[in-house]
Design a protein around this nucleic acid. Structure first.
Lengths: 124, 124
DNA sequence: CAGGATCCATTGTGATACTG
DNA sequence: CAGTATCACAATGGATCCTG
């Protein structure tokens, strides 16, 4: 992730760099996708966990927290005995899903090309 | 960066995850942008270094190497006394610039919103 | 149940120096 | 000039335990 240390002196805090620092993490893109697909329905923490296979309790909590802190997701606590918490994307978060979808689309289309290239250059 | 350890068992090697592992690095996006803007002109190593302020010799070399290994960039060595090396995006690399441009566009439009949100929630 | 704290392994990044 | 090896440091991500 990293923000900037010494070189963005010229372009202090390039917006794209800052965005990638937020969405380049291991889980952000998938969580945004899942929440976007569920929208306008909100999803409970446990439900999210089920829809993001392999994510740890900690990383889900942590990622949702950063999304919430950035105003990309909204958090709602249901005040019952085993407390339940629900998340949904904000309009801002939903708007981010568009460019992410473009990336997903490219990935599905062209990652095979990258793999092919790697295989060819490995072949003697 | 990381590729997958234990959870992508269900979605082994999600293409989007793998793509982000490649372009989420600190310099990839900017280098692709610079090369895309220069295309179809190729750029020398030193010229690239000038156009990516703050990047270290090592990181530029390393990043270009991974782009080349993925078939996103092409490398040409000019065989003169002080050897010069030129880089350009391949068609595949150029095609990747489109979704990245979408991300850049979103970043320029909406990162201020994220900043505003952070400022508001900081205000008592 | 959700979330926070702690500890640890791994990786990414950077400075530097050396090679062709 | 471009590339690479080495070393050091910061940042991620994951496992586990503890709390309201």
């Amino acid at each position: 992730m990293v923000t900037a240390r010494r070189g963005d002196l010229f372009d202090p805090a390039c917006p794209t760099r800052r965005l990638l620092d937020r969405v380049g993490g291991k889980w952000v893109a998938m969580i945004v996708k899942v929440l976007a697909e569920a929208a306008p329905q909100e999803l409970g923490f446990a439900e999210l966990r089920r829809r993001v296979p392999g994510i740890s309790h900690k990383m889900l909590s942590q990622t949702l927290q950063s999304l919430t802190a950035d105003g990309l997701a909204a958090r709602r606590v249901e005040d019952c005995v085993p407390p339940r918490v629900f998340y949904r994307l904000t309009p801002l978060g939903l708007s981010l899903d568009a460019p992410l979808a473009a990336l997903r689309d490219w990935a599905e289309r062209h990652m095979p090309d990258i793999d092919d290239f790697a295989r060819e250059r490995a072949a003697p």
